[in-house]
């Protein structure tokens, strides 16, 4: 269990770095949701199931959906401006 804990901690750092290292925002959002899932497992290992449930629902589920929607909205706006310029 201790080995698993340290492996997850290392993976947490790696995903957090990968989330900020890409230029493409979509990949960053996916890595952020993977970060949340790893964090959920860590909360469960540390005997905090309440926080783990909240993190799984909000971090991995809702945040990803809302970020994706906002990204698509911004891109739709940019497309519209391009069409107006043409």
């Amino acid at each position: 269990m201790i080995i698993l804990k340290y492996l997850l901690l290392i993976f947490l750092g790696v995903t957090a770095y990968l989330a900020i290292s890409f230029k493409e925002i979509l990949i960053s959002i996916i890595f952020l949701s993977i970060f949340s899932i790893v964090l959920t497992t860590l909360y469960l290992i540390h005997n905090a199931p309440d926080v783990a449930l909240a993190e799984a629902v909000i971090g991995a589920g809702l945040n990803t959906a809302i970020f994706m929607t906002v990204i698509s909205q911004i891109r739709a706006d940019e497309d519209c401006h391009c069409r107006k310029d043409d």
Binding site: P49, D50, L53, A54, V57, I58, G61, L62, A65
Partner: peptide
């Protein structure tokens, strides 16, 4: 484990 907040977010996620 759980409670009003966590279950409520799942309820909102259904609609989303």
């Amino acid at each position: 484990p759980g409670g009003g907040f966590q279950g409520g977010v799942i309820l909102g996620a259904i609609s989303i």
